[in-house]
Design a binder for these strands. Sequence first.
DNA 1: AACAAGGCCAACCGCCTCTGA
DNA 2: CTCAGAGGCGGTTGGCCTTGT
Length: 448
Amino acid sequence: MGRAPCCSKVGLNRGPWTPEEDMLLTKHIEQHGEGNWRALPKAAGLLRCGKSCRLRWVNYLRPNVKRGNISEDEEDLIIMLHALLGNRWSLIAARMPGRTDNEIKNYWNTHLSKKLASRGLDPKTHKPLVAKSSPNSPTKKGDGDSNSPSCHSRGDDPQEAWETTMDLDTSSYSTGSCEESCDDRDRRTECQPPKVCARLHRKRKMPVLGDLAKEKSASPVLSAGKIGGGATESSSLSVGQEEEREQDLQNTTKFNYPSPSSVFNLYSPSPSPSNSHSASASNCDSPTTISKSNTASSSQDLGQAPPLVSTSQHTVDWNDHEQQFQLRSQVQMLEFIDDFLLRKDDVIVAGGDLFKEDCSGDQFWDSLGKIELPDCSSVCQSDLWDGLTEFASNSTTQVVPSSSSPLPVADGILPMIIASTSPSNSSSSSSSLAATQVNFLHDELLFC
DNA sequence: AACAAGGCCAACCGCCTCTGA
DNA sequence: CTCAGAGGCGGTTGGCCTTGT
């Protein structure tokens, strides 16, 4: 706390960037790449703070940055992702190729929050504005407004966030009841907060997958606390909490997402001429080995999640609660795998026992030989499959569907084997098979 | 035409986590 | 284990632009 600014402000330019500065920065990064922002200004001959350079590059100068003209589909996606993720603009931006967190944040604050308000929804909570007087609404001591569940300060206890979201009344999101689907035990469990394998957090404290999943599953309205906020695990709820949770689970399934097309089409990158593999891969009945395309992944260069695609063949009746629920699961699954791919280092840590090479990041993924995904017959799995396929198309990875998992497939568990075989062209000297099993047990994501 | 008010958005600020020494 | 640096994030600011009077 109270740390000095990243650089002395004395003698540094501030305010809008000039074309000359832009040119210097772009030229320097083109020659030397990103990174070492503190040293960059001096090296590039800029009288700017390193952070300022980074921001200018990330938000404006970086290639492939789309500016303006946010479509209605993108608006829908932002709204949905905001409902899922809260004010985590960077996470939202990571799922919208070409868009920056700053732009999305600005767009939200200037357009979408008003749009939601005009629909009678609280932009922070996505709750109906008139529902405040509901007996179930959070009327904790003092002003409830400033303690809106979705805007608690960063670093709050996730458990508290979870408990807070319990109170949300999302019933008016529903166009109808879905109690039948909620009565289904398996489905209901999907809404429950996940347990997280502690092993994942051996190195990083960030309970990334778990908390994100917990928050996602807790409610369509997410707390806006930072991911790496605090304690990782506590699945022991009091009786009252259990009841509240049960209520929330039911409410959760009533949430209406934007139309599938608007959501999932946007997961895919803009139509690329040579992306035909995704369509074929979506057909799980005809397992196909996806060839390595080995195209440079610009999205990874940008630090974004590999864009996920979905099957355009899926026709989902938006008024069908059953399908809505599946879609919700899809979103969660996609989020899971998305985050899984994003947290490459975590995977290495989690699989440290298995992957013995002292390599990290891209090296690890370069060494991935193939991904096996058994039984991708359901909608959720096939979208998961598509995500993996898309990922594979941007890396030197083969994706091979397999109906014969070497691991037991229990009811409700979708095991995914991420097997690492060192390809011949890898710098890794290891040729041993390293495998990490990722079990999707409802909302539980376990690295075993 | 002039001014005020509000909107928009690039840039800044402060805090956080991660990482390596 | 501690500490400091680096990078990253979300909230906020302030100047420019547009619209209304």
